Amino acid sequence: MTALTPSVTRTGTALKTVRVDRQGPVLSIELNSPDQGNTVSDAVLDDLLTVLDDQDPLIQVIVLSGAGDDFCLGGDRNEFTEHLAHDPTGSGIRNSGIKARRVCEALTGNPAVTIARVQGKAIGAGLALALACDLRVGAENATFRLPELALGLPTAWGGLLPRLLSEVGAARVRELILTGRSFGAEEALALSILQKVVPGPELDAAVTTWAKPIIRRQAAALRVTKTLLNSYTAPTRLADASALDGELMAAVLAATHHSRAQEPRRS
């Protein structure tokens, strides 16, 4: 990938947690907190929304990646704790959930073709971000996990569950969520979580191989085709309750926090 600049949007808004680079009709967005495993905080969601809301209509391909060894280690659980400390009813978590859904919908419903470039670990919210993209290529070392249940959380972030069910199928998704086990790139390919697996050094070339023909497509035809693909997929998600993701996450965490607060202290 092209070296990404310390980032501002095209209208000059400074970004704190992501870097962006534009090469003609291709926009690269890189999660840029590798020392924290590119975990998804409110600041990350705000930056992603800023970039996607500020998107030039001439962009035809968006590449989402993560700096460092891992694509994304999931949601920032320390921030969840801070939100609960500030408001035990979970309003902060509820607001984060709304932002997460907006980001994932901005990727899925984007008029440009979105490509996830995945290396290392993609856990929880990281898997959700990747799955929100149209095309997903992973390095041979890529691993995936849905640890929410083991952490006492519902699988409710950014519309992840209905997308998983649509792309993978109920039986396999049930097993992955209930066990929380890790799985590798080849299994992710078999499950259609990835559409291509390559050696790590070939990730950029794989992205370019996809992007080159896409940017030659007529822009209006590309937009309409994406809309059709999303529309024809929608019937499989008629019972999509992901609008409640933020509410579910807030309710479960607030209840857990309250329960722990009521436990008698041990000397």
Score class of each variant (00 low, 15 high):
L107T: 02
L107G: 03
G109D: 04
G109Q: 03
N110R: 07
P111K: 04
A112Y: 08
V118S: 03
A122S: 14
A128W: 05
L129V: 05
A132R: 05
L135D: 02
R136P: 02
V137W: 06
F144R: 10
L153Y: 11
L153M: 15
A156G: 06
L160M: 12
E167A: 15
V168M: 11
R172M: 10
R172L: 09
T179S: 15
R181D: 10
G184W: 11
E186W: 14
A190H: 13
S192P: 10
S192W: 14
I193A: 05
L194P: 03
L194F: 13
K196F: 00
V197F: 10
P201N: 05
P201W: 02
L203Q: 09
D204G: 14
A205V: 11
A206G: 04
T208Q: 13
W210M: 10
A211C: 01
P213S: 02
I215V: 15
Q218W: 08
L222K: 00
R223W: 10
T225S: 13
L228D: 11
L229S: 08
S231W: 09
Y232K: 12
Y232A: 12
T233V: 07
T233L: 12
T233Y: 00
A234T: 08
A234N: 09
P235A: 11
T236S: 15
R237S: 08
L238A: 12
L244E: 08
L244C: 05
